[in-house]
Every structure is written in C-alpha cells, then in structure tokens.
Design a protein around this nucleic acid. Structure first.
Lengths: 225, 225
DNA sequence: AATAATTTTTAGACGAGTCTAAAAATTGCA
DNA sequence: TGCAATTTTTAGACTCGTCTAAAAATTATT
C-alpha cells in the first residue's frame, strides 16, 4: 500500500468509499444521482464534491456522464475498506462487541490516518482474511481473498453448509440473525424448500429447526460443507 | 461519566482540552491569547470559538476577561484526557508502539465518539492507572489517581528512585530518553550533583553511569524507592 | 423529430472554522 | 492621572461541505 501524497478529509474519503461500493455492483461510470442516494445527500453537493475529487486526481469526471475511480482513488477506497474491516474484526475479536455493533464504530475508526496502526492491528489479529460479517479483508496491496460463497437460497435440499457471511448489513437484519442463532460459523442443513413462497425449513447446528423467508436465505452467504 | 447531550466537533474538543491543560498549571481565568499560543492559532479565531463554546455552556466567557471551564466543559475535557491516555496505553501495551510514537495517534483516536469503546479498552488493559508517559488516567468520573512523584532534580545525593513519568512530552525529549535508556521503570541512583550548572551524575539500572543536565532532571518524574 | 420527463449542473446562500488588518478595551508606567 | 503599550475583539474575507431553487442538458416518448 502506497503513502498518499495529500490527505483527504473524512467527507472526501466517504465519497470515495461510496463510489467504490457502487462500482462493485455496477459496470461503467457512476451517476452523481446514485452517489447522492447512497450518501443520503443532495445531488448538488455531489456535483461540487466530484469536481474536487476530480481535481485531486482520485476520480475521472465528465459533466453529465458520471464518474469512475482513478487508480489512485481505487487504492484509497480499498485501503478504507481494509481499515474498516480490520477495525471491525478487532472490535469483535478483542473487545467482544456484537456483529451488529461494530459497523458504526468502524465507520469512525476507518478515518484514523496511520497505515502502521492498521498493519499492527492486522498482526495482533493474526492477519484475518474475513471480517465478522464474512466480508473479505483486502491485503496491503488491495487484493481481496476469494471465497467460495453462495447465497443460502442457491443450496439444494438435504445439503449441509456453514454460514460465512451476509449480503445485507442493515442493523435490523443483523439483529434478526443474532436473535435466531444464524451466526457466522453456524451449521445449516436444508430440510425442505417451499415453492409457493420460496421459504425454507432449515436445521441450525444439528439442533434447532427453523423456517426462514427467501429474503433471509438470499442474504445469507454459506460455503458447502 | 455522563452522556453529553450534543456532540462537539473535533475543533471544539481540542479547544476544551487546551483550556483544561492551561487551567491545570494556572489559577483563575485563561486569556484568549494563551489559548491562541497553546493551539498555535490566531487570537481572533480563539475569540470566535470561545463565543461558541460559551453559548453551548462548556465555558464561562467574559469579553476581555478570559474564560474558565464550566462543570460540563471540565467533565468533557477530563473524558478526553481519559480517552487519550487509554488509547496511548493500548498502543504501547498491545501494539508495541514506542513511547514517543503514541501521542500523535492518540490525538486522533481520542475523538472517536463512544464511551463504551473506551470502557472496553480499559477492561482489556486491566484498568491501568497511568499511561506510558507516567501520566495518571482519570476514571469514568474524572478522578485522577494521586501519585507520589517528584522531579528527579528534587532528589538528594545517594538517593535511589524509579522513573514514573515525564513532564515535557516533546518528541525530541522522549527520543533522547529512549536513546539514553531513561525509560519508565528505570532505577536511578543519584551519584553527584554539580552546583555550578545543576547537572547531575546518575547510575541507571545499577549499570550505566551518565551525566544529565538540569533540563532533563527537571522533566523526569520519579518515585522514592 | 419535437416535446415531455428526468437527470445533472449552476447560482446563491449558509455555518463552521480559519485568517489578516484595524479598532477598541485594558493594563502599565511616567 | 493621562498617555503608551499590550491584549482582545470586531470586521471582512476565505475554504469546505452542505443546502434549495432554478437553469441546462440528457433521455424517453409520442
């Protein structure tokens, strides 16, 4: 990971993160409007900011045509993701915060300016590859670990799998998972699929039977056992 | 420690910290000019800010008469000191940063908004009473541990003592201490005092003899053995 | 292809936090 | 006590990040 010549403000960093997130699930350039939606801010504010980010070389911006991350902006965004996920792992592993508590704190901590600090946390945590949500932690060079993950909804009846992540990170969802015991590492046997509403009956950790909706199975990542 | 009704900006927090620091070594009200010097900022900026802090009830401000911390401002400042010193202890104890590296990082980390995070770090560190510089860490209610400390310059010839803190926190000084082995916990025997320039000859950890200037002995806190 | 609907940008304003230069108040001193 | 020196505040300006409302450009539709 390089040292970045001039420091960005927290606001600038948050915009880069949002653009990175949108670029992940959408090819091509990102519209200012979609950034505004993602950041819960006015479109005019986005236009102002993308001009600044363009001037500092973090993004490519063409009026009315949206933006794309430059190589520099992409590296900064990936470093932010790395910092966020390492902090989440620290909070979860070392300070016993719960799955759904870590995000908001990491949102603050990711802006601390020190690569050395992150690298030492990484070492303390023994170089984790995935955060408490099951999301991969990029290494110093921005490389994400591949994982063989599938949405639970893709699995076959009678198959067994292990929960390794979530797609949806909303508090309400994480809370639901916590309460029902659908935790990271839990063993899931798919007992039955109901075609009429795509819900399914599952066996959690060989003990607890439960019916879950498609919304839940769509948003749970598992790996085959 | 209370939960503070409305959140302060980092700038506001830094002003409160500066006022707290100045109040510690000076009775009565604090002049805007001394705040400007402490914060390395223009006096006019201080006037603007103290008006804001006064409006939010953190300080008492009378034009041309300086400021004093309100009970609320005092509690906020002490909480910042607590956060700063707990982060320093974490960085030193758990991440093996050196004495002189921890300050700048803690300066950023102290602004993270979460008392729960600090309390859990406190627990992880086993409720330390002093930070790596030997400064006392206030508890949740803002109470500082008393320590029986004296500047090394106050000790008598032939006395033995242990280094428990520093007064001056400049990088150059901390660096000097690191290099010469004058570390926290080091055993110091005072061999000789030279009246003409107030320098002294000391024995460090029963092994290393060294001459130090008054500037050094003034700024090293020790406890009697 | 012309017009309607939508998206995006511009224009102008605001608050926070900072600055310099000038004015006002306080303090020190003869 | 009155003038000089110092401290402090005011005035006005600037940047960053945000907003709303209006204008301009793009896209969709008939």
């Amino acid at each position: 990971m390089h040292i970045f010549a001039f420091m960005l403000s927290q606001a600038e960093e948050n915009y880069l993160k949002a653009i990175f997130k949108l670029s992940e699930k959408q090819e091509g350039s990102i519209s200012t409007n979609s950034i505004a939606t993602e950041m819960k801010t006015a479109a005019a504010s986005v236009t102002d900011m993308v001009k600044r980010l363009s001037k500092s070389g973090c993004i490519h911006y063409e009026p009315y045509r949206g933006v794309t991350l430059s190589e520099k902006g992409d590296a900064i965004a990936k470093n932010l993701v790395r910092k966020h996920r390492i902090w989440e792992t620290f909070l979860f592993d070392k300070l016993n915060f719960t799955w759904d508590e870590v995000h908001d704190l990491a949102e603050q901590l990711e802006h601390i300016q020190s690569d050395e600090l992150i690298n030492r946390l990484d070492h303390l945590l023994d170089y984790p590859k995935f955060d408490p949500h099951g999301d991969p932690i990029p290494d110093k060079d921005g490389n994400f670990a591949l994982r063989e993950q599938y949405p639970l909804s893709d699995m076959d009846t009678d198959s067994e799998s292990i929960i390794i992540g979530v797609r949806e990170h909303s508090k309400t969802f994480l809370n639901y998972l916590e309460k029902t015991g659908l935790l990271l590492g839990a063993d899931i046997k798919l007992l039955e699929k109901f075609e009429f509403d795509n819900s399914m009956r599952i066996l959690i950790n060989q003990t607890k039977e439960q019916t879950i909706t498609q919304k839940v199975s769509n948003n749970l990542f598992v790996k085959k056992k």
